[in-house]
């Protein structure tokens, strides 16, 4: 340490200490780093953006050729020049809605069970189970749905059509009371495909809901407990109202996944191009299964039609996912970590 001032001993050369000069601006390594990161970011932007634009551009000839009929025609008969997605759109919506109808209550209750009811010992196991459920490939759910679930599900389907067959959606065009009932009328239906797809929708929705339930303010939970509330009382008055946004957002994310699901649906359904509300009856078709089944022997114009169908699906999932993202983002205001 040098002593600077009047008291310094003679003979020591005193140099006035200038403050260290700060060098605003970037070092060479930073220039490279920023340049590289920007290049990667922009090239990913360019490529992914180009894919989106390409898909949109490819659908112009199809839409110009078929016009509005593309959305109202239900047949997919390229050799007769009858191409339309009315039936597959309805089929896609049916499968996805059945999946949501099954998975929403299960995901909600399972998430609530994990955060509020499960004994602490098994809580982390249940969290792992949800993550594992999300990681299992969809084709395995397809095999499971076809070989293990379907033989039991057709019993349920028959029971539903027996007692609720007067409702159009549960009606099946066969005699459910026959002594030897027509099993093949109940297989490969939108109902069974929806059940298999719900296995993929549950973990997505459940993971989001669980994360939001965990963020419910501890003070309010304890306050509700202190007022004599039961666990259900706490859930009803504190957790669920707090997590409303997360519940909606997680459900919509799962819906986006259910709409685009291919492999499981392709294995289970028996393809049929018909607009119908009878979800228990054999035969339906979804957009992604349509593409997977027809791309092989398609001509260029038919490929363009398939791309258009896929683009319509993309627009739907994009809308659903964007809404989900907005809802989730709003519900998590101020949840940031900082030192």
């Amino acid at each position: 340490m040098t002593i600077v001032g009047n008291g310094s001993p003679q003979g020591v050369q005193i140099t006035p200490r200038l403050p260290r000069r700060l060098t605003p601006g970037r070092e060479p390594s930073d220039w490279i780093f920023h340049g590289l990161a920007t290049t990667v970011g922009l090239s990913v932007l360019a490529v992914t953006g180009a894919i989106g634009l390409f898909l949109g551009y490819q659908s112009i000839p199809t839409l110009r050729h078929y016009g509005w009929h593309f959305f109202t025609q239900s047949n997919w008969l390229p050799e007769l020049n009858q191409i339309g997605i009315a039936a597959v759109l309805v089929g896609t919506a049916e499968v996805a809605l059945i999946a949501m109808f099954v998975s929403f209550p299960l995901a909600l209750m399972f998430a609530l069970f994990i955060t509020d009811y499960a004994p602490p010992r098994i809580k982390s196991w249940l969290v792992s189970a949800v993550d594992l459920m999300a990681a299992v490939p969809s084709i395995i759910y397809g095999l499971w749905g076809f070989f293990l679930l379907q033989p039991h599900a057709i019993d349920v389907a028959r029971w539903l059509s027996q007692y609720l067959g007067w409702l159009p959606i549960f009606h099946v065009d066969t005699d459910p009371n026959a002594a030897v009932w027509q099993q093949s009328s109940y297989t490969g239906s939108a109902f069974i495909a929806g059940l298999a797809v719900s296995m993929m929708a549950i973990p997505l929705a459940c993971a989001v809901m669980r994360a939001v339930f965990d963020q419910a303010p501890l003070g309010e939970r304890e306050a509700a407990m202190a007022l004599g509330g039961t666990r259900f009382g706490v859930a009803r008055t504190v957790v669920l109202p707090f997590a409303k946004g997360g519940i909606i957002g997680g459900t919509m994310l799962a819906l986006g996944r259910a709409l685009g699901e291919t492999a499981a649906v392709l294995i289970i359904i028996s393809p049929e191009y018909l607009i119908k509300a009878r979800i228990l009856e054999a035969g339906t078709q979804t957009i992604s299964a349509l593409i997977a089944a027809n791309f092989g022997d398609a001509t260029t114009s038919q490929l363009s039609a398939l791309l258009t169908a896929g683009f319509v699906l993309f627009l739907i999932t994009l809308t659903v996912n964007t809404c989900a993202a907005v809802v989730i983002r709003r519900s998590r205001s101020g949840a940031s970590t900082d030192i």
């Binding site: 894919i51 898909l55 593409i291 993309f314 999932t317 994009l318 659903v320």
Partner: peptide, 17 residues
């Protein structure tokens, strides 16, 4: 925005592309 949008791309459509 674009990256978030592309997570919604159905796998079958990426394959078809």
């Amino acid at each position: 925005t674009v990256v978030e949008a592309m997570t919604a791309l159905p796998e079958i459509l990426a394959g078809l592309f």
